[in-house]
Simulated scan of single mutants.
Amino acid sequence: MLVIGAGGHAKVVIDVARAAGWNPTAILDPVGPGHMCSDVPVVGGDDEAGAVYAGGIRHAVVAIGLNKLRARIGERLLEIGFTCPTILHPSSIISPYARIGEGTVVMPGAIINAWANVGRFVILNTGAIIEHDCRIGDGAHIAPRSVMGGNVKVGAQALFGIGSVARPETTIGQGAIVGAGSVVVSAIEEFVTVMGAPATQRKGRMD
């Protein structure tokens, strides 16, 4: 398996991939050859994915924390021909009725309940809880120990911060950032930053 990214998040993704039965053997990252992430070698830069595919590696995972960049690189890998599997840590708990898109990584202890729908290239981080009927957009990041009540909708490439909570039936807009420890009790607009309990807007639109 090819890994894109050689930072701290990549270290965790490599662990999760191995626990899920995959064998990461090569990394592409701008730091270039001669570096290692965990014990996996960096073999080139991001622009060499086509050459890696031609060399016989057919599966890839994007191990980059930045949502917009992760989603963009993931789509490029699919265009090249890579399969970007859904990677599920064995300790995660996932309803058989949940749906999870390609390229998404589900970290240790995460819970996804019935009829939740998680998009492509999402990070469901350690211990996150996604309740029934939630909708998580492509490229979003649901951070460690965050909790979403039933039927919460999260837009594409939004960030739901560490330890945050969303009340059932709330909506978090595309590209929004919910700061760590926030409590979302009403709709959050697209491309804004909110924080606090209750979560209130702290910065204007960032689109």
Rank of each mutant, 00 (worst) to 15 (best):
G163R: 07
V178A: 04
A110Q: 12
I27D: 03
M206K: 05
G109K: 10
N67G: 08
E48P: 02
H132G: 11
V178S: 02
P24I: 06
Q174M: 01
M1W: 09
G161N: 05
G103S: 15
G137I: 15
R205E: 08
C134I: 14
S182Y: 03
N125D: 05
H132C: 03
A71Q: 04
A158F: 05
V118R: 09
E190L: 11
A19W: 00
A49M: 07
E75K: 06
A140V: 10
Q174S: 08
G163A: 10
V42T: 10
K68D: 00
H141I: 13
A114E: 10
S186T: 11
D138V: 14
A116Y: 02
K203Q: 08
E169R: 12
R58I: 02
I14F: 04
S146H: 12
G50A: 11
V152G: 05
V184Q: 02
A19Q: 02
G137L: 14
A54I: 01
G155F: 02
L88C: 11
A110C: 11
A158R: 00
F160M: 06
T126W: 01
G8K: 06
D39V: 06
L2G: 11
A17I: 01
V61R: 08
G45P: 02
L159S: 13
I64D: 01
V185D: 05
V194M: 08
H35C: 12
I100A: 14
G204F: 10
C134K: 07
Y53N: 00
M148E: 03
D46Y: 12
S95C: 11
M195D: 11
G44Y: 09
K153P: 00
A51W: 04
V16N: 08
N67T: 05
A20D: 01
E102M: 14
R145E: 14
R18L: 07
T25E: 07
G74A: 01
S146M: 13
I93W: 14
A110P: 09
A19F: 06
A17E: 00
A98P: 05
R72C: 06
S186L: 02
F121P: 00
P198Q: 05
R167F: 11
G163F: 09
S182T: 00
V105R: 07
N151F: 05
G56A: 03
V52P: 00
I64A: 10
A128Y: 06
A20C: 06
T193N: 11
A199C: 05
I172M: 01
L78W: 13
P41T: 13
E131N: 09
V42C: 13
E48I: 08
D29G: 00
V154M: 02
A187C: 02
S92L: 06
G56H: 07
D29S: 07
A116K: 03
G55W: 03
E169W: 08
V118M: 10
D46I: 15
G34N: 03
I93V: 15
I4H: 06
V147R: 10
V43N: 07
C134E: 15
G149A: 10
I100G: 12
M206D: 06
G139V: 03
L88F: 11
L88Y: 06
R58Q: 10
P108W: 14
A114M: 10
E190N: 15
P90Q: 13
V16P: 02
D46H: 14
G44S: 07
